[in-house]
Amino acid sequence: MRAQKRSFVRPQADVNSDINVTPLVDVVLVLLIIFMVLTPLMNKDLAVQLPEQTEAPAPPSRPDEKLWVVGLTPEGKLTLNDEPVDDADYVPRLKGILEARPRGQRHVFFKMADRAGYGRLVAALDGAKAAGAEELGVLTE
């Protein structure tokens, strides 16, 4: 019997664990070219015409037109032109005041203490709308 010759398959080279940089450089160069082409196109100016600011005097208020201001104290109490108002009396009283005014002049302003609850303000705004207020405003310091 003849001895068989054993042959082993040997790898041709060791495993290459280095990073192949060539595709990375290709991608970076393509991105660089894209950004170089797009950057000058992004610097477009928009023509904006701003209105000229003039000092216009406030329109004169008529002496018979009284501004109604609903206030909220830090304790959450309602006031109507600095006069305390009960929650149950707030909407009917404001409704009587607003119905005496002509349409288009039913404005109510609100001022609120910093510590008053936001929920109370929303309830006061809803009450003013239910009373017939056409415009609601908030006064700031």
Rank of each mutant, 00 (worst) to 15 (best):
L136S: 11
M36L: 12
D26P: 00
V9F: 08
A133I: 14
L125G: 01
Q49P: 00
A3R: 06
W68I: 14
V70M: 02
V48L: 11
V108S: 10
E75M: 12
A123Y: 09
G71A: 12
D45P: 03
V28T: 07
G104P: 09
R6W: 02
F8Q: 11
F110P: 00
V30A: 14
P23A: 00
D18I: 01
D114I: 10
M36C: 07
L78D: 04
L50A: 10
D87I: 08
P57W: 01
A128L: 07
M42I: 03
G76H: 02
G117C: 01
L78E: 01
A130R: 15
D87G: 05
P63D: 13
M112K: 14
Q49S: 11
A128E: 08
K111M: 13
K111V: 15
V108R: 08
V21F: 13
L31H: 01
G132E: 09
F110D: 05
L136G: 12
D126A: 06
Q4S: 02
G96C: 02
L125S: 07
D26Q: 12
K129I: 01
R101M: 10
L121D: 11
Y118K: 15
K95C: 02
Q4G: 01
V70L: 03
A131M: 05
A123E: 15
R2Q: 10
K5A: 05
R101W: 03
L31S: 02
F35R: 07
D82A: 10
S61N: 04
G96I: 10
M112Y: 00
L38G: 00
V85T: 07
W68V: 15
A116K: 03
T73M: 02
D45W: 07
P23S: 07
R10W: 03
L72N: 06
Y118F: 15
P84V: 09
E134G: 14
R10M: 10
A133F: 11
K129F: 01
D86P: 05
S7Q: 09
A124C: 10
D126Q: 15
E141I: 00
L67Q: 06
R10Q: 09
L121I: 00
L38D: 02
T140M: 09
L80W: 05
T39Y: 11
I34D: 07
A130D: 15
E99P: 00
M42Y: 05
G104N: 09
I33P: 03
P40F: 06
R120Y: 05
V25E: 07
Q53E: 12
D14Y: 08
Q12T: 09
V25T: 11
R6G: 01
P84M: 02
P84F: 05
Y90V: 13
N81H: 04
E134F: 10
L80K: 02
R93G: 11
E141F: 09
G137D: 12
V122M: 12
T79G: 00
A124V: 05
A113Q: 13
P51L: 00
R103S: 14
F35S: 06
E134W: 12
Q12N: 06
Q53G: 06
G137M: 12
T54H: 09
D14M: 13
A128W: 08
A124E: 03
G127F: 05
K129E: 14
V69Y: 07
D82V: 10
D87N: 13
F35I: 00
V85R: 06
N20Y: 10
G104D: 12
A100M: 11
A47T: 15
A113T: 11
I33R: 00
P60R: 06
G76S: 04
E141A: 14
M42E: 00
N16H: 05
N20F: 12
I19N: 06
M36W: 10
R62W: 04
A116G: 08
